[in-house]
Structure formats: structure tokens, C-alpha cells
């Protein structure tokens, strides 16, 4: 029972590890890593879904009778691409956040957002006023 579902156990464990990192860690890069682990667990789930012990790729030949289902593998190829795009975009955002806040810690960023709220608005107001004046 336990060994028969070995892949599924791994999938669930990885999924929980990934989600836990996303929720529990304050470091933005660690969150992205957690997200990647979470997504990877789903990839493994799809891949093991289609694998049959001893099955080969679907080659039309008399020598082979047992095939693995190639469809989930193809699907997950797409999902891997999506996963990479998400990770890349997430990391790019972290770079911009680091430039803007000078920090990649969640608490730090939220504190900066909450404190100078009014000043910031006035700043941006001033900025746009300057811009319009310059144009005039």
C-alpha cells in the first residue's frame, strides 16, 4: 500500500513543503523557491500518472505491447514552460522590489508601506505638479 503509492506520497510531501515555504517565509526569493517546489510536485504527479511499469514510449512495433501514456507528459512540458515563466517574472519583480524598497523581506516592505503613506502621496502629487509646470 505504502510502496504502491510511493510517487503520490512524494508528490504530497513536496507540495506541502512548497506551500509551507510560500506561507511561512518572509524572504521574497525563498517564497519563489517554495512556489517552484510546489509547481514541481504537480509536474511529478502528472508524469507518474501516465507511467506504467515496463511501458515504453508509444512506438508502433510488434516488439512492444505495453505503452506509457504520452499525453500527460506533453501537457506537463507546457506546464514546465509556464512554471519557468512564472519563476522568471517573480524573480524580476523581486529585483525591482529590491531597487524600490532596498529590501526583500516581507515585514520590512510592509512596514515601509504603512509608515510614510501620506508623505508618499504628497511626494507623487508634487512630482506630477512639477511635471506639469515644466511642460507649461
Amino acid at each position: 500500500m505504502l510502496m504502491g503509492l510511493f510517487n503520490n506520497w512524494i508528490v504530497v510531501v513536496l507540495m506541502m513543503i512548497g506551500l509551507y515555504i510560500v506561507i511561512a517565509h518572509g524572504n521574497l526569493i525563498k517564497k519563489i523557491v517554495g512556489l517552484a517546489i510546489f509547481q514541481t510536485s504537480v509536474f511529478i504527479f502528472y508524469i507518474s500518472l501516465a507511467k506504467i511499469d515496463g511501458g515504453t514510449a508509444p512506438i508502433l512495433s510488434d516488439n512492444y505491447t505495453l505503452y506509457s501514456n504520452p499525453l500527460p507528459h506533453v501537457l506537463i512540458l507546457t506546464a514546465i514552460v509556464v512554471g519557468i515563466a512564472t519563476t522568471a517574472l517573480g524573480l524580476a519583480l523581486v529585483v525591482r522590489i529590491k531597487e524600490a524598497y532596498d529590501s526583500i523581506e516581507e515585514e520590512d516592505i510592509q512596514r515601509q508601506d504603512n509608515l510614510p503613506q501620506d508623505n508618499q502621496v504628497q511626494d507623487s502629487q508634487l512630482l506630477t505638479k512639477n511635471e506639469t509646470e515644466n511642460k507649461a
Binding site: 517574472l89 517573480g90 519583480l93 522590489i97 524598497y101 516592505i109
Partner: peptide, 9 residues
């Protein structure tokens, strides 16, 4: 940026 990051997650 922070909003986009949260939305992404």
C-alpha cells in the same frame, strides 16, 4: 511592485 508580487504568488 509589491501588489504584483503578491498577486503573482
Amino acid at each position: 511592485l509589491w501588489a504584483a508580487y503578491q498577486y503573482l504568488i
